[in-house]
Structure formats: structure tokens, C-alpha cells
């Protein structure tokens, strides 16, 4: 079994892992680092449960090999959460009952993080588009959309921004 070392920034800190070349990034953070908030719902790139942020963009941890993370910056749900309590998006999701079993939730939070990072005040269509690659079997998405809209609303008030583009 050949292995390789890969070094990257994980949740803001340097990390070096010894991995099999075929190991996915999601498996690597789960198995080597015990960061089990990155979930595996399909392992073929459709469900979005494995979503992590790569330099701020939402990507699928099950489709990327760990070795491909060399020198890049990866954020998992553990890194995206505040030390205690809930971040803005997480808090809105709780308030809107945007989760039931919670299995999709880390991926949803990160998909929305990526959206809000470049679109602070998205409209409903943009939100639905941003989470369209994240399956949720429990909620019907409606409360997730409502949670995201409430964050957009807050951002708009803070920014004094104009109406959403969609």
C-alpha cells in the first residue's frame, strides 16, 4: 500500500496527512483527523453531504482526492463553526427549523456560507440554486430557504443594500 504526504491548510491551521493516493478528501479528514462533521451520503458527488470549502468555494469532499488538496486551504464544518454556539447561518437554520435528522446540515451550512461570501443579500432563486446540489430528505428545503432569506434580510438591513437581484 503506497502512501503519500499531503500538506494543506485545514480550518486555518497547517495540516500534513499521510494518505493513500486513492483516498478522498472527505475520507481523509474523517478518518485521519476525526473531523466527522463532513458526512458521506452517496460518495458519488450528488448529495452534497460531504461539502467542504476550498478557498471559500463549496466543493464535494467525496470527489476530491486528499492529495489534490496540496497547498490549498480547506474549511470543514468544524472550522466554519464558532468556538461555541452557532454562527449566523446556523442560528437562522435553527430558528427556522431547517433541519430534522441533521445529516445534510453541515453541507447545507457550508453551501450557504459559500453563497453569502460573495452574495450577501441573495433572493430566493439564488438560494435555491446555491443549495440545489445539496439533498435534504427531511425538510422539503422550505425552512432552509426561509433561514437563508432571513440572513439575507439582516445583511440587507446592515448594508442598507438594494432589493435582491432575483
Amino acid at each position: 500500500m503506497t502512501t503519500r504526504d499531503v500538506s494543506f491548510t485545514l480550518n486555518g491551521r497547517p495540516a500534513t496527512l499521510t494518505v493513500e493516493p486513492r483516498q478522498t478528501l472527505a475520507d481523509a479528514v474523517r478518518q485521519h483527523l476525526g473531523l466527522t462533521g463532513t458526512h458521506l451520503g452517496c460518495e458519488h458527488g450528488v448529495c452534497g453531504a460531504c461539502t467542504v470549502l476550498l478557498d471559500g468555494d463549496a466543493i464535494r469532499g467525496c470527489l476530491m482526492l486528499a492529495v489534490q488538496a496540496e497547498s490549498l486551504s480547506i474549511t470543514t464544518i468544524e472550522g466554519a463553526s464558532p468556538p461555541e454556539g452557532l454562527g449566523v447561518i446556523q442560528d437562522a437554520m435553527q430558528r427556522h427549523h431547517a433541519l430534522q435528522c441533521g445529516f445534510c446540515s453541515p453541507g447545507m451550512v457550508l453551501a450557504l456560507e459559500a453563497l453569502f461570501a460573495h452574495t450577501p443579500c441573495p433572493g430566493e432563486d439564488e438560494i435555491r440554486e446555491a443549495i440545489s446540489g445539496n439533498l435534504c430528505r427531511c425538510t422539503g428545503y422550505q425552512p432552509i430557504v426561509a433561514a437563508a432569506l432571513s440572513v439575507a434580510e439582516k445583511n440587507r438591513a446592515n448594508l442598507g443594500a438594494a432589493a435582491p437581484s432575483a
Binding site: G37, T38, I77, E78, Q90, Q94, P106
Partner: peptide, 8 residues
Amino acid sequence: EDKRFLRG
């Protein structure tokens, strides 16, 4: 239960 789920 939401807090633990949302924080991964």
C-alpha cells in the same frame, strides 16, 4: 438537538 447537528 440542532446545535450539535449544525456544528457537525
